Simulated scan of single mutants.
Amino acid sequence: MTAFESNSLRSYSQEEVQQILQRAIARQTDDGAHEFSYQQIIEIAAELQISSEAVKQAECDWILQKSDVHQRKAFNLYRQRKFKKRLGNYGIINGFLILINLLGGTGLTWSLYILLFSGLAIVLDIWNTFQSKGEEYEHAFQKWNRKHQVKQTINTVLNQWFKAFQTY
């Protein structure tokens, strides 16, 4: 496209429009502190001939996606903390076994085999902990998420019960 083509000859796909508008909004808010009200979003959408229902549905989808991303971050942090604990346990146990082997006076013999096999277990644990894609990850996340939601529900019910009990 040359610089001399008229504005009326230009046409863009929906994806290109989204990218252009996203960049324009980002440039307009240099400090990053500018926020848009819901009413402003509705007005912008109306100018683009987007219905308010479509905006409401898009907002709901965005909130769900944001919640899912937040949950996945929490899950990944949980997995990393759990891994650090297991790594510490591996280190303590293997250090103790090496010390026993050295105190036996025969040097490092049998403890090296244990160290080798536990090292393999650590490598597999690293792979499983930091692998954030695939069916196994998704299954583990779903299991953790259900467990997490049950805990939240129980805490909410207990808190409401305790508040009701305190009022009597």
Rank of each mutant, 00 (worst) to 15 (best):
43 E>R: 03
39 Q>C: 02
17 V>F: 12
90 Y>L: 02
141 F>R: 00
69 V>K: 15
155 N>E: 12
100 I>G: 03
119 G>I: 10
28 Q>K: 15
29 T>D: 15
81 R>P: 02
97 L>C: 07
10 R>Y: 01
129 T>H: 00
122 I>F: 09
4 F>M: 04
83 F>H: 03
144 W>H: 01
152 Q>T: 05
132 S>M: 01
104 G>W: 07
78 Y>C: 13
43 E>T: 07
105 G>L: 05
8 S>P: 03
83 F>V: 00
79 R>P: 00
89 N>G: 09
55 V>K: 07
72 R>Y: 09
11 S>L: 09
134 G>K: 08
95 G>Y: 04
52 S>Y: 04
29 T>A: 14
141 F>Q: 06
145 N>P: 02
45 A>S: 07
131 Q>P: 01
59 E>H: 15
154 I>F: 02
128 N>Y: 07
69 V>A: 14
61 D>H: 10
94 N>L: 15
102 L>H: 03
108 L>A: 02
166 Q>W: 11
130 F>M: 02
39 Q>F: 06
41 I>S: 12
17 V>T: 04
116 L>W: 05
103 L>M: 03
166 Q>C: 11
77 L>S: 12
99 L>H: 10
42 I>V: 06
167 T>D: 15
65 Q>S: 12
167 T>F: 12
79 R>G: 03
162 F>T: 01
114 I>Q: 14
115 L>K: 04
68 D>Q: 13
71 Q>A: 15
41 I>W: 07
9 L>P: 05
62 W>E: 14
117 F>R: 00
68 D>H: 10
19 Q>L: 09
35 E>Y: 07
79 R>W: 09
43 E>G: 10
39 Q>G: 11
115 L>R: 05
43 E>S: 06
101 N>R: 02
82 K>R: 13
1 M>I: 06
152 Q>N: 06
168 Y>M: 11
125 D>P: 08
139 H>C: 13
43 E>W: 08
58 A>H: 03
25 I>P: 05
143 K>R: 14
139 H>N: 14
66 K>R: 10
109 T>F: 01
46 A>M: 13
123 V>P: 01
102 L>A: 06
141 F>W: 05
108 L>P: 06
40 Q>C: 04
5 E>S: 01
26 A>P: 00
36 F>W: 09
134 G>W: 00
135 E>I: 08
109 T>L: 00
120 L>K: 02
53 E>W: 09
114 I>K: 04
58 A>W: 11
100 I>P: 00
